[in-house]
């Protein structure tokens, strides 16, 4: 019983620490918000890359390692898990709100909303954008170009 409680608090502690580790390319959201952190199993932390070739993957692992070291948890093992594959469905509600406030349209299966004026009258300029996870859009009402987090 006490073991289970200790385990739970360890997991919560790790998640608390990681909720302050920002994504290196989209610093408004944490690695927890993005759904990159998959599991805390015993003393092992499982993370997953967003895209196979996401260049931020190594930086993310290093940032997580640094944060855990600083918090006095140097013995946590970090594992990369590929299955099941990461999906934007794992981005938290809080993460979506942060993306929107930052000027990035969060992933949605319905109409793409301009993060500046809220209009749904928008168009895609380029399906490939500044990072693998984003596409470039433009608002046809306020004329603002903006990044959209692709549904994936």
């Amino acid at each position: 019983m006490s073991g289970a409680v200790a385990e739970l608090s360890f997991k919560d502690r790790v998640l608390e620490i990681l909720s302050h580790v920002c994504d290196p390319e989209i610093p408004c959201v944490s690695v927890v918000d993005l759904g990159i952190v998959r599991e805390v199993r015993g003393r092992t932390l499982v993370i997953t890359p967003t895209y196979s070739g996401c260049p931020a993957t190594i930086a993310i692992e290093q940032d997580i390692r640094t944060a855990l070291d600083r918090a006095g948890l140097p013995d946590v093992k970090i594992e990369i898990g590929l299955s099941p594959p990461w999906t934007t469905d794992w981005i938290s509600e809080e993460g979506r709100a942060k993306l929107h406030a930052y000027g990035i349209a969060p992933p949605s299966r319905s109409a793409v909303q301009c993060p500046r004026c809220g209009s749904e009258h928008t168009e895609e300029i380029s399906r490939f954008g500044s990072t693998p996870c984003k596409a470039l859009h433009r608002c046809l009402d306020c004329a603002e170009p903006f990044d959209r987090f692709k549904c994936h």
Binding site: Y51, S52, G53, G129, P132, L136
Partner: peptide, 21 residues
């Protein structure tokens, strides 16, 4: 053009990531 530069580089990046795995 710029959009194509982004697209081809992004496709290349995906492929190099898959290659790594």
């Amino acid at each position: 053009m710029l959009e194509l530069d982004l697209a081809l580089a992004n496709i290349g990046l995906d492929l190099i990531g898959q290659a790594t795995h």
